[in-house]
């Protein structure tokens, strides 16, 4: 076991990890931040996406020890400081961008990464960027609408 320290959602945290401890396990089991979901654990589904130093990564495919010292942001860091939903989260609620909700944390984190890179994406850009996020409920249309709405653009009509 070795001790790792990093910043998670703006707070300094540390914990004991094995070499094989995945970032997803460190967040969920070490820190109790269970908003990050592990859907497939095989790098396919994107439910576990978090930001490491501002970049989207699959937390199930990164070792916690490899991101020691980094700044990590999870879905728990996406709400406003007063606890109300952040812009992207609110847009997912407004446009019913979730059904069972399991993929939602990864969708929101990927959407946030997209909007940071490309503040006014086209519908095609959104669909292309969310390529690595799978919604088992197949609720993609409303997810795409939510991301477009979160970017301040009009959303396609029904």
């Amino acid at each position: 076991m070795t001790k790792v320290s990093m910043t998670v959602n703006g707070k300094s945290v540390s914990g004991e990890v094995e070499g094989r401890t995945l970032l997803s396990a460190f967040l969920r089991e070490g820190l109790g931040l269970t908003g990050t979901h592990v859907g497939c654990d095989t790098s396919q589904c994107g439910a576990c996406v978090v930001h490491v130093d501002g970049k989207p990564v699959k937390s199930c495919t990164v070792f916690a020890a490899d991101v020691a010292g980094a700044s990590v942001k999870t879905i728990e860091g996406m709400a406003n400081p007063d606890g109300s939903l952040g812009v992207i989260q609110q847009a997912f609620q407004d446009h019913h961008g979730l059904q069972c909700g399991f993929c939602t944390p990864g969708m929101v984190m990927s959407a946030a990464a997209l909007l940071a890179e490309n503040p006014k994406p086209s519908e095609h850009d959104v669909r292309h960027y969310l390529d690595g996020n799978i919604c088992r409920c197949t609720g993609y249309h409303n997810i795409v609408k939510a991301v477009l709405a979160a970017s301040g653009q009009s959303v396609p009509a029904e």
Binding site: S43, G46, V49, V52, K55, P56, V57, K58, T61, V62, S110, A113, L114, Y129, D131, G132, N133
Partner: peptide
Amino acid sequence: IGDPAVRSR
């Protein structure tokens, strides 16, 4: 290559 999260790492 892959998807955006894969390309980050």
